[in-house]
Amino acid sequence: TCQVHFESSNWKSLSIKRLTDSRLHGSTGLRSGSQANFFPPLEDAMLPSGSFNNRMALITGGGTGLGRAMTATLSQLGAQCIIASRKLDVLQRTAEEISSQTGNKVHAVQCDVRDPQAVSQCVDQIEALTGLPDVIINNAAGNFVCPSERLSPNAWKTITDIVLNGTAFVTLELGKRLIQNQKGASFLAITTIYAESGSGFVVPSASAKAGVEALYKSLAAEWGRYGHRFNIIQPGPIRTKGAFSRLDPTGAFEKAMIDRIPTGRLGTPAEIANLAAYVSSNYASWMSGAVIRFDGGEYVSLAGEFNELRSVTPDQWKLLEAMIRKTKGS
């Protein structure tokens, strides 16, 4: 049965037998995930070739997942890219693969963003290789699901050190040097939709990502005078090997994720890469302090109190409307 409750002093709770006619579901677009046919991902680079010619881009966490996808797109569009993370062997493989595909040099630089001294040394190396970057994408992150009562201080510190402190150390170190050299730049942070709402079971990540958003909005106001702009992308669920192995290790929650996304599918790394490239490009030079939700409608789907009424069939609505019309009073 499908329980539909109307919280009103004059409306009774209604219990309706769910109709199971598959033809009805198919003809009205109610079959789970079928709406994805209306929203196919376009994964080719959307900006004109050469949009990042003569520009340098630093991408933290650029060796895998979303970072790799953003690096590939920026390199394809002409950028000279620097990718940074702790695992130099992974970075070097990615750099070689992308360089061979795009013909543009990708540099691999080892850096533990949790360590401010390591960040300073990394920026020294970047300056020697390419000069200070024009585009900085803070993508390095860490996350795992865990009941908050089971969190250790070390688990909390591990995530907040990477996400919040790491972003701050990279941003402040580069920002200070850019200001000293009177050079403008575009800064972009990759956060998540629950940075805005909060979320159980990923509390360190939610807290740290919220801090990153406050940092970037604050600097957008303060450092525009130096030619710096700061923007934020909040991705919804995008399948990457690293993230899903820690957030959905059994694969049990993927269908539930898709069911609650109005566009009926997960995002793709190439889609986020296209958005990141636009936000970081000169086509978006008037954009600063923006928070862009990119989630197929998941956030608003979860937020609306009555959104579960999507599961009510046309025949059930006829029954509901007939019952509502009989209700007397205000």
Rank of each mutant, 00 (worst) to 15 (best):
E222D: 14
P41Q: 07
M287H: 15
P147Q: 15
S199Q: 05
E173Q: 08
D161V: 05
P40K: 11
L42H: 14
Q125L: 11
N274E: 15
F169M: 06
K105R: 12
G131N: 09
M56C: 04
D248K: 03
V170D: 05
F306L: 15
S13F: 11
S301F: 03
N274V: 12
S281Q: 09
T191G: 05
T102N: 07
S8D: 11
Y283C: 10
T171L: 10
T191F: 15
G329I: 09
G304I: 08
S205I: 00
S22L: 09
W286D: 14
P153F: 01
L30T: 07
E7F: 13
I162P: 06
D115W: 05
L88Q: 13
S330F: 13
L129E: 08
E298R: 11
D315W: 12
N104T: 04
S148D: 02
L88E: 12
S15C: 10
T94I: 08
Q110C: 12
Q3R: 14
Y278A: 01
R23G: 03
E222P: 01
L42F: 15
F187N: 07
L14G: 05
G78Y: 11
L275I: 02
N138W: 13
A140M: 09
R55L: 10
S199R: 11
V312A: 14
Q182C: 06
N37G: 15
L247S: 06
P235G: 00
S120P: 03
S49R: 07
A69P: 11
A155V: 03
L14F: 12
G142W: 04
S49P: 02
R325Y: 05
R55A: 08
M70A: 12
R86W: 00
S9A: 12
T160E: 14
C111Y: 07
W286I: 11
D161W: 03
G251E: 03
V119T: 05
A243D: 03
N138S: 10
F294M: 11
E96N: 13
R293W: 01
A57V: 00
G29I: 14
D161Y: 01
W11D: 08
S120A: 15
A290C: 13
G227V: 00
P262I: 14
Y226P: 01
C2P: 06
A79L: 12
R265S: 02
T20Q: 15
I190Y: 02
V202E: 06
M323Q: 13
L58M: 14
L151I: 14
G78S: 15
N139Y: 01
G61E: 02
A108Y: 03
A256W: 00
A141M: 09
R93W: 02
V119N: 04
K157I: 06
Q316D: 09
P262R: 10
H107I: 07
S49E: 14
D21M: 04
N138Q: 13
K105L: 01
P269D: 00
S330C: 07
P40W: 10
L219M: 10
E254D: 05
L66I: 14
T167Q: 08
L320Y: 03
S311I: 15
S281M: 11
S32H: 05
A155N: 09
